[in-house]
Design a protein around this nucleic acid. Sequence first.
DNA 1: CGACGGGACGC
DNA 2: CGACGGGACGC
Length: 594
Amino acid sequence: MADRKQSVLDRDSHPSLKESKQDEPPNSRLFIVCGKSVTEDDFREAFHKYGTIEEIWMVKDRTTGEPKGVAYIKFSKTSEAATAMEEMNGRCIGCHPRPLKVLIAHSREQGSRRDSNEEERLLRLFVVVPKSMNDSELRDHFAQFGDIDYVSIVKDKNTKESKGFAYVKYHRVSHTAKAFECCERSFKPVFADPRPPKPMHADSSQSNIGSASSTTSNYDVFPYENHTAASTEGFSRLAVVASSSVNQDQLWKLFDIIPGLDYCEKRETKNRQQGRCQYTAVYNNAQAASYAKEKLHGFEYPPGQRLIVKFDYINSEPTRSTSTGTLPTSTVQSSVQYAGVNCLTPVGSGTRLPFLSGLQGQGGMESNVQPVPTTNPSPVGAPYHGLISNIAPNNAARTAALHNNLATLAETIAQATSLIQAAGLGQGFLQSPSKHAVNGADERNDLMGHLEMLGALSTQGIPLSPNQAPTNNNYPGETYDPSYCSVKLPTPQPLAPMDSPVGERLFIVCQPTPPPIYVLKDIFGRFGHLIDVYMLGGRSCGYAKYADKDSADRALMTLHGQEVCGSRLKVMTAEPPNATNNDTLRKRIRIEEQ
DNA sequence: CGACGGGACGC
DNA sequence: CGACGGGACGC
């Protein structure tokens, strides 16, 4: 339609929109919710096998820089992203206990808004067909890409003649993506616009709370199944925890704002928590209950006292909600946080799973769900102690065992290091280990030695330079100033002649400000065959030119994400010169379309 | 010679 | 709870 064409034109003619590539091809970007300690490298390792990763972006808080537990991964192809989503949703990566939630990212314009019939967005293609083509011919062509839900040629209501276009719907996003990419180009496939949502029942949607998102209530919570009456019943009951400064009548009136409330009553519980009371609120329909949960969960009533509102499944065991549990706080929080995903997301069971968002962490499930066991669950906020007990054990036997298996050791340390870095503690730790919970010189040396080893391993076996090698066996860490570079570097190497042919160029971004240029030359030069490094005048980015592609790739692998002289580096392969302006971009697109 | 079609709904 | 950054071509 006109809309679609217009948006393309807008993007092409707007020089300011440099992000135009991020949603092309469509649905090739993942939106991932993860534990806050997960690193970019964890993602790269776990996702690279699904295709070509163009970018990984870890979202951080704008002011504090704290990771938000959200990441975007851009693949070069839609089908790569689709397969990665299907394979990785609900799974754990690295040593992080929380299962990932992996979704196809919305366009920037759509943002976090969820459409009512969200799943169709990724399962249905709109195609142009010859007027003479019938359903079975259409199906024959598209069946080669996966299991078809239906094909539907749009016909004139009166004459029954084909209008020349059709819909093809699959059961799996990856199949839709394959068809999108591989079907005959004459079909001009596009992901079909979602059908307009069905008008809702007149009653329950009229609340004036949270008007902006009032259309999202129903499908957000039930996107997967057509619930039977029995299973829906559980969704009509809510378990509520409120401050004891609120009485039953007040709470009743609050929940009665959403039409359909049957009753709201206090619940007597054994393990009650100081200052909090539990209630049951029952609606006469699941939609109303769902809506109430969405709007009132977390609502401060009275101000400063958040309500907890969850579904209360009729046949579930007596709830052990977050606020009344007897487990240690940290355990309860973490299991609740991902109980929903864990429980409801069997690996590899298909495309419907990503839309479970509305159910995550909601009531009735945490009582019998535990986090996926991991070798080393490290509670966020206290990565330190667990870490040290892992890699600096107190008994010699354990140490010896570790040394017997170099691979295990390296992996353990790699995980530990990423935890340290994720916690932002790397520097302080390396510089003053004695401040931390280490029990003595032996353990400290052990730990520092391991980290030393990690440094050597992480630079792919390149030996340490003589002037960085430990000269003091008791305090090897002190011979290397980690504020220079947060990773061990290879020994300095000669530069390549200035007139060498360029084998590969790296694009470098330094945050917040670039280190002195001689530092960059030293660091990037240590991978060999460096022709030159330069920063763009007065800015925080620049280029490194290498005569040898392998050298450049090693530099990228080692230095990306590292800190040099207090500046965080981003290192990526540079686009060819002038490839970023819109004229050439448009030309390239034109050529590809031919 | 000469410039942008066709194209939005089913189980 | 969990949605959008910064950074592109020198001397």
